[in-house]
Design a binder for these strands. Structure first.
Lengths: 150, 150
DNA sequence: AAAAATTATATTGTGCACAATTAAATTTGA
DNA sequence: TCAAATTTAATTGTGCACAATATAATTTTT
């Protein structure tokens, strides 16, 4: 694979497509595991946040996952419908909606406990390469999130 | 950031979320550039393939981009509507639909020529890190695409 | 305190992704 | 040869993403 000394329009040379394809492939790898929990991948991400800290607002969830209310509101309603969480307006500020896990939502944590190990086996990267790839991706995302004039 | 010696359910330790977030951020970075061409990011990927080789079938496009007809058919119809390509059944095999660029579609290539350079400036990675990250992502996707029992 | 600005969520509409099904053309094989 | 199996697209339905807008609550300003 040639280095991108002259940035080209060739699909296989592009970082963006490698990223796009790998991300979808990763989601596809999670799919059968999450199906057992009746969760989609974005729903799983929401549950990861709530398992770390319950009682967050939609805004806080959105900040953590970089998703807006147009995505989160219907997703959270589906999780509410599934009995995993409750949504209620905050008394201190009626604009905010607080998300709290139900017993059922908390219990799902146990059933999800094996997923990271399953994935680690499937991904089969050394710790060094795993950490390096993850941190390069975080660095890239941070770079792209920064204002244009930096 | 701790190495994943014991795979956990912590969002910030997960490769999958770093991948998911970086991919969406990358698409968001393309968005304003592609808006000038009246293309979405997946439409741009289709055009990249067609600029490399015109006259491919939906199946070949799908193989290249790892997308199925449920995604491609409506997307291609929109690009046809926009006057960038034509869709016609192959005479040699009526099951296949051949996609050919119109003059307008070919002309768009010139207007897209600057996009890789714009992105390269925005991403601001050394050639080594760019190539390494891209190839690690390709390797990961290939690993995840392989049958489970490998 | 009332008006204006800001903030948080919800709603609407468009365009992917992807599973499942359907339909039509082609190939295989009994 | 012709019935069965396979291949290719299209269709249908669900669930994200995200822009744009609306609505209601809160904060800031005058």
């Amino acid at each position: 694979m040639n280095p991108p000394t002259a940035p080209s329009l060739l699909l296989d040379e592009q970082l963006c497509f490698a990223l796009y394809a790998a991300s979808r492939r990763m989601t596809a790898t999670y799919r059968p595991l999450l199906e057992a929990l009746d969760l989609t991948y974005p729903q799983y991400l929401v549950m990861l946040v709530l398992w770390e800290r319950d009682g967050v607002t939609v805004r806080e969830l959105g900040a953590r996952l970089q998703l807006d209310s147009g995505t989160l509101t219907p997703l959270l309603k589906r999780l509410e419908q599934a009995g995993l969480l409750a949504r209620q307006r905050r008394q201190s500020d009626e604009r905010e909606v607080e998300i709290t896990l139900t017993d059922s939502g908390r219990k799902l944590h146990e059933r999800a406990a094996d997923i990271p190990r399953c994935l680690a086996e499937r991904i089969c990267l050394s710790v060094d390469r795993f950490v390096n790839l993850r941190d390069e991706l975080k660095s890239l995302a941070a770079q792209l999130a920064a204002p244009t004039d930096d």
